[in-house]
Each structure stands twice: as C-alpha cells, then as structure tokens.
Amino acid sequence: MAVEERNLIAPGAGLTAAPPVVGRFSDFVYQLRGNPATFAGLFIVVVIVLSALLGPVLARYDPYAVDLGQSAVGPSLAHPFGTDQYGEDILTRVVVAARLDLFMVLSAVGASMLIGVALGALAGFFGRFFDEGIMRSQDVLQAFPRFVFAMAVAWALGPGIVTVIVATAAINIPGYARLMRSLMLSVKETQFALAAVAVGNSRWRLLWRHLLPNCLTPIIVLSTLQCGFTILEAAGLSFIGLGVRVPQAEWGVMIAMGLQDFLQGHWWIYTFPGLAIAFAVLGFNLLGDGLQDILDPKRRRV
C-alpha cells in the first residue's frame, strides 16, 4: 500500500475515480463565485499566461540589453525591479521569462500526461502482465526522490531547455499512470461501459470513445497541480546550473544570478524572480485545489 501512496507529496495525491460532473458553463461560474480562492488562482494563471503571450510586446526594455553602466542598480522609477549585474532590466526579464517557463512547464506536463495516461490506460484496460510490467516500472521510477531523480537525468542530458522538459516530465509520469490506471479500473466496471460492449462496440472504440472522456476531470485537476510543482522543479534545476543557463531570462537562472551577488546586498536581483515563481505556483495550486472541489461531486457547493 505504501507504494500507492508514495507520491502523496506529489500533486494531486488522493485524487480518486469520481464520476465526472458534466456541467454547464454557467454552473461552473456559479461554483467559482462561491470559492474566492479558486477565483484568485484562475486570475493569477490568466495573468501569467497573458504575460507569456504579450510580455515581449509590453516590455519597455530589451531583456538582453547589456548596459554595464547600469549594473546592479536598485529599484527606481526607470527600473522598478532594479537591474542585474549586466544592467539588464529585471522587470522586463521577469515578465519575458514567463514565456519560457510556461513553455517548459506546459511541454513537460503535456508530455508526461500523454505518456503516463497511455501507460496507465493500457495497464488498467488490459490488466495482467501489461499491468504488472507497467506498474512495476513505475515503482522503480518512484524509488528515487523526485528532485534527485530530475537532477540525475538533467545532468546526464547536459544543460538546455529540452533537458529541463525531459527531466521534469520524467518525474511526473508515474503520477498520471497510477491515477489513470485506477480510473480505468473503476470506470470499466460501470454500467455504461458494460452497456457499450453489449451494444457491440469494439474494445478500442470503447477505450477511445467512452472510457477516456470519463477520466478527463481528474486528469485536468492533476495537470493543474503538476504545473505548480513543475515550475518549482524546473526553476530548481536551472538554479543549480543543470537546466537553462545564464544569460537566459528564466526565473531560476535569475535567482542564481542573485546568489552570486548576495554578499553585495543586491536583494532585488533574486527577490523579484522568486516572487514571480511563488506567484505562479500559488496560482496553479489554488486553481487546482479549487477545480478539485468544484469538479468532485462529493465536495461540491450545494
């Protein structure tokens, strides 16, 4: 049983196979209104997405404009978040970095979702040695502490954007596989799956048209929570130099640059990128928790 619960700390632990609430949009809005924390989470995520999309357009400076005359200047009207050692404007870089960070995180979560869901669905749907083989391989993956595993993978691949994506995707796969498997097992038993077979649907068709859509809700919740965790882990990898490297505008890298200047007391170099990370992760966590409440019929507002 411990293996099942090993990833409790990981996002979405305890998600169970709840039949989806197929709700109307207006109902969703109603649920959201009674849940200010979720609303705040949604708001934050929208802000992050907007700055990822529009950041480069809105920015007043070029994020890579080196100006050694303006090196490590504290916050001022011209540079509200100050500048870093190269005289680059930190506000601009924080906003622009949203694009890269979001890209890495969404790619990683998307990739782990595709792989994990496929593995879990196969394990749950076909059972037997498929199940054994797939689930035992997930056990081995989870025998490593999450971040240590990501570190090792990132090191083996060498620094770069793709590295961050692969390393953080790898640690998220078991979460999806386990969730998907348990969903599959419970949905498979339901009346309508039996009915669909009785009506003469083939197994593949059943899998594709009937079972997968019913697993969607918990997967969405899990993905939202995974995004938060993955932002932290991606930034952590870049912070220790195993991910994206200086001078890329990336939140973890920017904090690492601040660490170099720590003894000079240039607090603004690391404070603002860190706030950006915390803000983004908070957004995804609040949204994920809220979605769980809204979409889980047992926890809905009545």
Binding site: G228, F239, T271
Partner: peptide
C-alpha cells in the same frame, strides 16, 4: 500550507539569509 508548497525553497533560503 498553500504558501509552503508554492515557494521555491532556494529562494526562501536566500530571503531569510538576507
């Protein structure tokens, strides 16, 4: 609980040190 899981640990350490 929500702040603890949202903060990058290395950043928290730096802020406290500062």
């Amino acid at each position: 609980s929500v702040l603890g899981v949202s903060m990058p640990i290395f950043w928290l350490g730096l802020m406290l040190l500062y």
